[in-house]
């Protein structure tokens, strides 16, 4: 029987004991059924700072104001439903712990920018998904299909690994000043998803996608402000991916 000593387990788990503190959440409310104007509303609740911002939103919705409206599903940063502006920065509410936000001060929460707000924290995602669909986000191949899998070396697979992580939450696109000013711009998320296929050794439509992104609303609009990279909850190096697409447009090598 093998035995190993597990060192300092309790320090690691921080005991898991719950200590509530009082936190103010300042939330941007908007409901056109009630008023044409958006406004800020404060909610003061007692909550353990180790909880997620999403837990706080739930606590408010479930115990104080059932009309507070937001999207969410997985609650652990994998479905991309709950990107929002938290203290002025785009994040996923379910991946942001209250303690990491300086809860001594009011925590502000509002919808992501650049997409039409429909109610409270819910925005119209259609233009975002349209830009995604416009870059041909699917594998294109020609010739006969192999009977078994296409082979791909581990190195070729690694080439586009980073951009396969995208969960289409729009945190990047809606943090981009170019996108705020001009909704026609494809935005970082669409370019990330184009990158995922352009650099996939199995794909044959790289040229077509590059042409799409060569458009006036394409990749050249990017001003390299790095907001997108900072915003990405999946840690994708978005700006680097965009730079690689620009480079591929110049050299036509990918």
């Amino acid at each position: 029987m093998s035995t190993a000593t597990v060192e300092k387990p309790e320090a690691a788990a921080d005991n898991g004991a719950s200590h509530k503190i009082t936190v103010t959440f300042r939330i941007r409310r908007f409901n056109p059924e009630v008023s044409a104007e958006a406004s800020w509303q404060d909610f003061v609740i007692d909550i353990d700072p180790k909880e997620r911002v999403l837990d706080a939103l739930h606590q408010i919705k479930w115990e104080e104001d059932g009309t507070l409206t937001f999207r969410r599903s997985c609650a652990h940063g994998i479905c991309g439903s709950d990107a929002m502006r938290i203290n002025g920065r785009n994040r996923l509410a379910c991946k942001t712990l209250i303690k990491d936000l300086n809860p001594a001060k009011p925590i502000s929460i509002e919808a992501i920018k650049g997409l039409t707000v429909l109610k409270d924290l819910i925005v119209d995602m259609e233009p975002f998904f349209q830009a995604y669909r416009d870059v041909m986000p699917f594998l294109v191949t020609s010739g006969n299909e192999p009977t078994r899998e296409r082979r791909q070396s581990a190195a070729d697979r690694e080439r586009f690994d980073d951009t396969t992580k995208c969960i289409l939450c729009a945190a990047c696109t809606s943090s981009c000043p170019v996108f705020w000013n001009d909704g026609q711009y494809f935005g970082p998320a669409a370019i990330v998803n184009a990158h995922r296929f352009i650099f996939d050794s199995r794909d044959e439509a790289g040229e077509q996608r590059l042409e799409i992104l060569n458009d006036k609303d394409g990749v050249w609009r990017c001003r390299t402000t790095f907001n997108c990279t900072d915003a990405c909850p999946r840690g994708i190096e978005v700006t680097k991916a965009i730079a690689e697409v620009k480079q591929a447009l110049i050299t036509r090598r990918f």
Partner: peptide, 17 residues
């Protein structure tokens, strides 16, 4: 194999399978 053909990026062995 169908998913691979649709483009799913599976992890690969040293010989690319």
């Amino acid at each position: 194999l169908d998913l691979e053909k649709m483009g799913l990026p599976f992890n690969r062995t040293p010989d690319g399978t």
